[in-house]
Each structure stands twice: as structure tokens, then as C-alpha cells.
Design a protein around this nucleic acid. Structure first.
Lengths: 334, 334
DNA sequence: CCTTGTTGACGTAACGTTAATTCAAAATAG
DNA sequence: CTATTTTGAATTAACGTTACGTCAACAAGG
């Protein structure tokens, strides 16, 4: 492949001029005619800049890494889009990794830790990155931004507490009194449960204990079964993780519980799929796309050494998307 | 950050020795005591090799790109895992891009086209990459492997025709006679339709025309509605794209069609979600994980200049996963 | 006419690595 | 005891860029 040297030779100019043409540097100036001559030579030779050499010289790769807990989780779709878009605006490409495969000594981690691979790192590990890995990452000289609550790193996240509150208050307003909170585990789920508690307290209702059955479809099914064993069955359920809502629907069907007539369901997080389920699932949509964009911006603040905005994103707020899985309580219960 | 030069100074040896220790090169030899001295110095200084400098020197980045049509499609989950794993075994990292954002002049494409970014490229664009982009990619000096049927490039793919045949034959064996084929568009869908036709012909049944309503949930709903307008309503339906099965289920519910009692449904491709829907969806699982692994192997054959295995993957075969959305036809119809 | 400033370039030293070449000292062979 | 080989390392030239420093030629100002 043609290099700047080849172009220089073909155009009868020095290397410096070619480089200046490529980058539009102001230091090295040239006649317009020279510039077009160089441009033509580049065209003819099919010159493509060598990104690696550029990175070495500039000590900057125009690449950032994003590490997600479970890449496949559809709630990360908009997050990823936000990150990719914002990164592109900064002229950067995104290297995507999965926390699950980021064991100590893994290929991806080694790559990240070696110098000159990425300009910065975005992490959403939901507590799944073990301490060894985090310690290794901490030794990384490039900035790291955590896309969830963190104690010892710059971080930014959506408002999970508020989401729990919004979901619960909606059910309260539909006259439900026995509302349970199901699924999840870890800090993030606790925040949502906190929001649930707040909304229950505000309505003078007694919060039920958190049925922390974990993540995914099965967790939802398990949660519903557990909830239904209570002395007084709930009339409504807040599902911590949206994919668990699928499991809740399935378990309800299996148990002969009609949704929403016998049980109202609200999920936290929203994905396209929810509008295509029957009943379509009412959910609290989190600004994940914005989180992605804000994350990249904050990361680039860190990279540039600027002070970086962090903490909980309160604008936009989590947004309730009303569909068919929750309805007002009309029958008298308990 | 510490470089090899710093390590060399600290250990009182030359650069060459440090490099040899890092790579385990046999050319430059050294005493065991020297080796440990260097290793200690590396440890003390926290030396991490500079990947960029290495890439520049070796003209090899240990990074491959994978371009997918719609990253978010859950059927790509296993494909991605296969690719990531196999790449890791080759000591490589994967740069993931979406065909949708790969317009001509896009950040990601520019990055790919510049020299020294990746060692090779894997593409599954499902016809969505426009000709400009493909032409630009073709000019790329590094090998490209297409993960679907291609005319002018090395390619490899799963057996879509066979999948259509398997799905259809299963329904035929359940005594269905009016079977429609719904959803999709493009070469890949045609292959599956071809398999459908084959199975229908083999059973002496008349294939219905391909209702090519496209991809995704909505496409399934549209397809079912269209299919139901026929003079004699079908008793079974082969859904080209698995996510469309969600839409089929929803539309059936909306139209008051009971699945599987009034209509049997079989989807092509399988994702975890299907077992959590009600009814759980019977589907033909494609060896996407293996496709990912095989794709990486074939790509590395190309990179190494070896002859590369290509074409349709027939082992393992698409596998029928029987769940609850299809049942034997017992009532007399038409 | 000399001074100063501007234009349009060129040369070159890095960036951190790898691998070819070279070479002194030690070991071995004759 | 000398000739030859082996061991253990050092020097150095790239890889393709970018940016600093330099400098001739020419124009403008006094």
C-alpha cells in the first residue's frame, strides 16, 4: 500500500507537505497548486492513511472500549447506539466487550491493559466484574467511566430509584394496595426497590420485602410464583428487570392468572419487544440512549482533563409507557 | 508509562534483550539470570507492551472487524459469541460494527479502510450494505469473508434451504396440508422458501406464494393477517424470521386465533425468548455459534494465505426444537 | 538599498517496537 | 596452546506518521 512517502515522491514534494495536506496542518503551508498536486497523487496511488502509525505518533487511538455486563440484553441496544453515535462524533470507534468474558487474563482484558489500545473505557458491569479485573483496570493509565453507581471512579447512571417510584406510584394510583416488587439483585435493583418503598410509604401502604430472584425471564417466573404464595395475594407487581416481565407473563399464563384482570404488571426498562407481547407490557422507559451519549461526553471530558459531569441523569426522567398489562383495581380484595 | 527502553535501563541490558523477553524470541538469547532480572524490572515499572507500536512494526493488529446487519437481532447473539471466542483463540479482538450505520463516509467505514486497523473483516449485511460501501470495502487490502451467500467473495453460511425444509416437513408430518410461508425478503429468505417448496412438493402439496413481509415483529403480524385473507385459511405457518414469530403470536391473539389449536406455528432460527413465550414457539435452531467460529477460522485461513473452507455449513444441521406452538391437525378442514 | 516579514516548502527527530546484524567473551575441539 | 564454535548480548535500521526547526526566495517598508 502507498504511504505518504510514495505520495511525496509522486507529487515531487517532501513528506512534510503530504502530511500537512492529509491533516490540514497550518504550520506547514503550501501553494494551492501544490496541494491539488498532492491530492491527485494520493488519489492515483489510492493512498490510505495508516491509522497505526498515526496512533503511535499521536499517542491516541481514536478508539474507546465499552464493557457491558450482558451484551445480549436488549435494554443495552439504545445504550450502544448512543455510545456509537457520540463516539463517531468524536471521531472514535468503539471496541465492545462483555463482562462475562472479561476474566482475569482474558484476551480482551490483556488487550485493554496494553498501552495504546484505547483512549478511554466505559464500563457497565452491574457488579459482575470481579475485584481482580477491576484492580487491573484501575491500573490502566487511560480514563475509566462507570455507567452505573460507583464509589471510587467517575460514574454516571440513569435514575433507577425514580423508575421504581414511578412504576409503583402508577399502580398505587390505579388503587392497588397489595403491590410486590420482584426480581433483580445488587445495588441497582436496591435503588429501584428504594423507589418502590418510597412510593408505598407515601401512599401509606406497607412495602413487601424485595423478592430478589435475579435477572432474565426465569427470574420473573420464579418471582411471580413466590409472590403468589403470600397469605394475601398481590394484585399488582413491579418487575425489576424488563426481560423478567416475559417470564411473569408466562408464569401467569401457566398458573391461570389473567393479566391485567387479576394481576397488573409494570416493568422497569423498556424494549421494543414489550409492545408485541400479549398483553403488551406497561413499562418505565429509561433514557439509555442518552446515558450512552452522556457517558461518551463525560469520558471525553476526562480524556481532555476537563471536569466531567457525573452522577444520576435526571433529565430526561424515566418515562412511563402505558400499555395493557396494568389496569385499575375495581374488585374488592383482601 | 514505562517502555522497553525504561525496562532495559533499569535491568542494565539492551533493548533487544527486553524485546526478546517479552516475545520469547529465540534469536536473541540470554542467561536465565538476565531474563529474571528483566522480568523483575518489568514488574517493578509496571511495564505494559504498547500494542500500537507492535502493530506498526509487525503490520498486524490482532484485531478483526465484524459487520452485522442489525446488531440488535438476538439471533446474532450466538454468532457473536462464536466469533469472539474463536478470535480470542487467535489472540485477536473483535471490532463490532452495524451495517445500518455503515454509510459511505461513516466513521466506522473510514476507520476500516485506513491501513493498519484490522487484519480482516467478517460481514453479514443481508443485502443491506449498499454498493458504494461494498466497493470501498473491496478495495481493502486485507481479507474479507462474507457470512452469507456471496458471488464475488469467499463466503460461508448456515443451511437456510434445509431449515425451511425441516420446518415445513415437520408440519407436513403433523398432517397439515395448507401451510403458508411468511416473512422476510432477499436471497436468504428465498433459500428458506425454496426449502419450503421442496418439502411441499415432496408431500404432493401446492406451495403457497411467499408472503415476503420483511423482518421483525410487525412483519410477522402483517404476514399472518395477509395469510388469513386467503380463500382457504392455512392451518399452519412457517415464519421466516424468528422475531416475526412474536408478531404472529400477537396478531393471532388479536384475531382470536388459538395457537396451536387453530394454527400451528414454526419459526426459523431460535432464540432463548421463544421458550418463554406462551405458547412456547417451536423453532428450527441454526448453528450460528458454529458459523461464527467457522467464519473466524476461514478468515484466518485467508489471512495466512491458506486455502479456506467455504460454502454452506451442513454439519451440524439445523435442528428442530419442538415446543408448543405446533400440533397435529385433527379436525377436518376445507 | 538594506531590513524585516511572509510565503512555501524541506529535513529530521521522535513515537515504541521487532529483528537482522554484529561482536566480545567463554567454551570446546584439535 | 591455538582455532573454531557457541553463548550472551549490544547496535541499529526500519514500520508510517507528525510537528518542530530551518531556510531560501520574494515582497514590502523605511
Amino acid at each position: 500500500m502507498a504511504t505518504q512517502r510514495d505520495v511525496a515522491r509522486a507529487a515531487g514534494v517532501s513528506l512534510a507537505v503530504v502530511s500537512a495536506v492529509v491533516n490540514g496542518t497550518s504550520h506547514t503551508r503550501m501553494r494551492e497548486s501544490t496541494r491539488t498536486r498532492v491530492l491527485q497523487a494520493m488519489q492515483q496511488l489510492g493512498y490510505q492513511p495508516n491509522q497505526t502509525a498515526r496512533s503511535l505518533r499521536l499517542n491516541q487511538t481514536d478508539m474507546i472500549a465499552m464493557i457491558l455486563n450482558k451484551i445480549d440484553n436488549p435494554v443495552y441496544g439504545p445504550l450502544r447506539h448512543g455510545v456509537y453515535e457520540a463516539a463517531a462524533e468524536h471521531g472514535a470507534t468503539v471496541l465492545l466487550g462483555d463482562a462475562e468474558t472479561m476474566r482475569s487474563g482474558s484476551q480482551f482484558l490483556t488487550r485493554l491493559l496494553s498501552q495504546g489500545t484505547v483512549d478511554g473505557i466505559l464500563i457497565r458491569g452491574e457488579g459482575l466484574l470481579d475485584d481482580d479485573v477491576m484492580a487491573e483496570l484501575r491500573s490502566h493509565p487511560k480514563p475509566i467511566l462507570i455507567l452505573e453507581h460507583a464509589l471510587d471512579h467517575p460514574w454516571i447512571d440513569v435514575d433507577d430509584r425514580r423508575a421504581g417510584e414511578i412504576a409503583t406510584r402508577f399502580l398505587v394510583n390505579l388503587s392497588h394496595r397489595h403491590i410486590v416488587f420482584v426480581g433483580g439483585s445488587g445495588y441497582l435493583s436496591q435503588q429501584r426497590y428504594l423507589g418502590y418503598q418510597q412510593a408505598m410509604d407515601a401512599a401509606g401502604l406497607t412495602p413487601a420485602p424485595h423478592l430478589a430472584t435475579g435477572f432474565g425471564e426465569q427470574a420473573g417466573a420464579d418471582g411471580l410464583r413466590q409472590a403468589m404464595q403470600a397469605a394475601t395475594a398481590p394484585t399488582a407487581i413491579v418487575v425489576n428487570n424488563i426481560m423478567s416481565a416475559v417470564g411473569v407473563l408466562a408464569a401467569a399464563r401457566d398458573l391461570g392468572i389473567a393479566i391485567p384482570d387479576q394481576l397488573s404488571v409494570v416493568g422497569i426498562h423498556d424494549v421494543d419487544l414489550m409492545q408485541h407481547l400479549r398483553p403488551a407490557v406497561t413499562a418505565v422507559r429509561m433514557p439509555m440512549y442518552q446515558l450512552g451519549r452522556a457517558g461518551v461526553e463525560a469520558l471525553y471530558d476526562l480524556i481532555a482533563g476537563r471536569p466531567s459531569a457525573g452522577g444520576v441523569i435526571t433529565d430526561p426522567e424515566p418515562e412511563l409507557v402505558i400499555r395493557d398489562s396494568a389496569t385499575a383495581l375495581t374488585r374488592i380484595r383482601d
